[in-house]
Design a protein around this nucleic acid. Sequence first.
DNA 1: ATTCAATTGCAATATTATTGCATTTAAAAT
DNA 2: ATTTTAAATGCAATAATATTGCAATTGAAT
Lengths: 151, 151
Amino acid sequence: MAQTRNKFDFEDLLDKHHLKKTSPRLRVLSMMASKSTATSQPDLESVMNDIDRVTLYRILNAFEEKGIIHKVFDLNGTANYAMCSSNCEEHHHHDEHLHFNCTMCKNVYCLDDLHLPPVTLPEGFTTQGFTLYANGTCPKCTKKAAATAKV
Amino acid sequence: MAQTRNKFDFEDLLDKHHLKKTSPRLRVLSMMASKSTATSQPDLESVMNDIDRVTLYRILNAFEEKGIIHKVFDLNGTANYAMCSSNCEEHHHHDEHLHFNCTMCKNVYCLDDLHLPPVTLPEGFTTQGFTLYANGTCPKCTKKAAATAKV
DNA sequence: ATTCAATTGCAATATTATTGCATTTAAAAT
DNA sequence: ATTTTAAATGCAATAATATTGCAATTGAAT
Ligand SMILES: [Mn+2]
Ligand SMILES: [Mn+2]
Ligand SMILES: [Zn+2]
Ligand SMILES: [Zn+2]
């Protein structure tokens, strides 16, 4: 379940990062925060069809740089964006959680509380960060499939 | 180090998958097999600039479907392709190894022998496969950086 | 109220990917 | 060895995704 945030939270968030409180930005924030899954670039674009596509790209890039959102590529290489729940800083993300990509509904879930087990890399490789991806069926789609099978 | 394969291996490989042994396909195979890292679509295209870009896309898709190569997206969302070392079957890959993306040289390494630790998903999620990504500095770039620092 | 830098919108361009169709070619059939 | 055929390629057109430059607009500071 996504954290419920109000208008003022978003305004504070933009203030904190020295970003001007504009209508496009506030709308993008409230859309992304209202969902429990990541938002794909195409989705964002079709929902916010009155905002220029270039503006959307620039908003997403700015938010990502500031550590407000993070980008995830799904199994098809489509860019998806989700709020950073943890304490991501400017140019320094900490989103080392599991990204679950449902092959039925295509949704990308950020499973935040799933900590990654430690991995030892071969000699010579030094790592800055990890991301674990999984694909399969999400709870909603599992239920849906079960219901259809019954009939 | 990539396994050295000769022309006959590639012809056998194509035969095995009921794919015609054509010049473009053999060239793509030998290029990919000669490298220890994955090959990006742009790289492939610039090296094989005499092969039509559509043909390249179709070759890559065919190889992926047959389980000859697998696709990896790097940190920038660019498609990269690498030989399947394990026993991948048609429409059923088993490439659950670590993908290391060097932030300096942008190369993607398939670290095959690195087994993923088991992860337990939250209730309701059923998984078909995992992929672990890491980013950081590869051995070559680490050495290069050390050499530059000395001077 | 005025000023100014940040942000947006628009036009042009670049990059990556897909589709339809005519031509070519590897492999099978004769 | 020739003919036949399905598979594969190349080309043209189009779609989808992303970036850049610049003029107009607007939020926030003065
Ligand atoms: Mn996430
Ligand atoms: Mn791999
Ligand atoms: Zn689903
Ligand atoms: Zn490197």
